[in-house]
Design a protein around this nucleic acid. Structure first.
Lengths: 249, 249
DNA sequence: CGTATAGTTGATTTGGCTCAACATCGGTGG
DNA sequence: CCACCGATGTTGAGCCAAATCAACTATACG
């Protein structure tokens, strides 16, 4: 069988990706937390942001750096990881266009609790957290939106704590894949395609296990015709089966 | 040795504990998120709250109930737990006077993700989440405070995810005890006294293990003269040792 | 003082980690 | 365009931390 190279995704060059001013404004306008503001107001806010481009695998900030900035993804995607003392990596979250990360805290003497790394060529809008705080004070609508997002993330984090405390690795891998599909997947004729370069190492870091165990379980899922994977993509073929495994309460 | 009954804590009767109106107002005023408001404003807000008393072990709300209320602890303490399909309990958080829990979300069709249970006789102030939302809109300062608390809780939850993913049970128990000491402990001549009735079951639920394993590890800590425990109290005698085990990065 | 509940401790089992060898992918240069 | 090679993924074997099962003990409360 000569089936080399059947990647179902567009090949993307790993080039620094910067925003055009118009794109920037457009993106800011469509952010969930700014889209209740007037064009005038967003234009004003736009001036305070800087944009910086990153290539794949490039670090946006390191854990333990002084945390002074809030970041917004204008394009691309970002992973947030924490490392423990022996260097084991825990993948906290994967964020996509329009989501924010970094520091919300305006009080000095705080440090990033995680490392942020671009998963794809990405354009990141940055703002000083103190300046962002002024925006929050000025526009209560924005505050509430940021609060809602944060509250939602807290609920998700708590769900993950429950998973880690009370479910098997197989369960957690299924849950991880489901969440990834919901958040980053797009439906196509074969199923739900997740077009993000996720290594076994990343999956393991999200599910709280080792790459070997993740690989074993994913093989099992592939044999059961639930999944199909390549180095830089994953397709969920049978989402019902995954849901059944996770047993949503 | 006739050392029966050496409990280092005041005995509290398990009676329904209700707030006096003055106490209520006082508590609202001292809440971190209202203490920037004027007396006039707090008095106004006070009218919208109801208070309800609970005895120990009483349920404030159940997981999967429709979530319509935000709760604030006027007195006492509350634990938040999640259960998985086989009934295993995960203790998400322990909250004390002045802290809030329940629903922030004003949009219908949402359900509590956890069960809230009084750990001690407690008085809980309740407000409809929609009405609370109006307060948030009216007072941006309050919004920001609530956001800060939520963001802080998210960071803590993420830290716990890291712990569960990458540390041994012994480590996690040490971490759990440290956090409990920081949050609920009071320094006295013997060490840090945690005056909350925490069973081995609770500790296990916080550290993501079983009561038996929790018991074994706590015994080990007691033999190493790090801890001293009774049914309803815990004293941390050697906090440095615990910190060393957790290896704060 | 007696009883129910919570905690302790031991024996056994097991899920998942570790270590190790091997296979496959996909980018790179000849 | 093909062959090579480093990186990533897969699979097997053995081992260990922690779960489970079970018997027993201590504590608080009526």
């Amino acid at each position: 069988m000569s089936n080399r190279r059947r990647t179902p995704l567009k090949i993307v060059k790993n080039e620094v990706h910067s925003c055009t001013p118009i794109l920037r404004l457009n993106i800011l306008h469509n952010l969930p937390f700014f889209n209740n503001l007037s064009h005038q107001e967003v234009t004003e806010i736009n001036k305070i942001f800087n944009d910086i481009g990153y290539v794949s695998e490039e670090t946006i900030y390191h854990m333990a750096d002084r945390s002074t900035r809030l970041c917004v993804i204008a394009s691309g995607s970002v992973k947030l990881i924490r490392q423990n003392a022996d260097g084991k990596e825990v993948l906290m979250d994967i964020l996509k266009q329009g989501e924010f990360f970094g520091s919300l805290d305006p009080f000095g003497d705080t440090y990033y609790q995680e490392t942020a790394i671009a998963l794809q060529p990405s354009c990141i809008l940055k703002i000083d957290s103190e300046e962002f705080r002024t925006i929050l004070q000025k526009y209560p609508v924005v505050s509430l939106q940021v609060l809602d997002t944060t509250a939602k993330r807290l609920l998700e984090a708590q769900e993950r704590i429950k998973q880690l405390s009370a479910h098997s690795v197989e369960n957690r891998i299924a849950y991880t894949l489901l969440k990834l599909g919901q958040k980053l997947g797009e439906q196509n004729e074969n199923g739900i395609l997740i077009q993000i370069p996720l290594s076994r190492y990343d999956i393991a870091g999200m599910a709280g296990t080792t790459p070997e165990t993740a690989s074993r379980i994913i093989s099992k899922f592939k044999n059961a015709d639930i999944l199909k994977t390549g180095r830089k993509w994953t397709i969920i073929k049978n989402i019902e089966q995954l849901e059944k495994m996770v047993k949503i309460i």
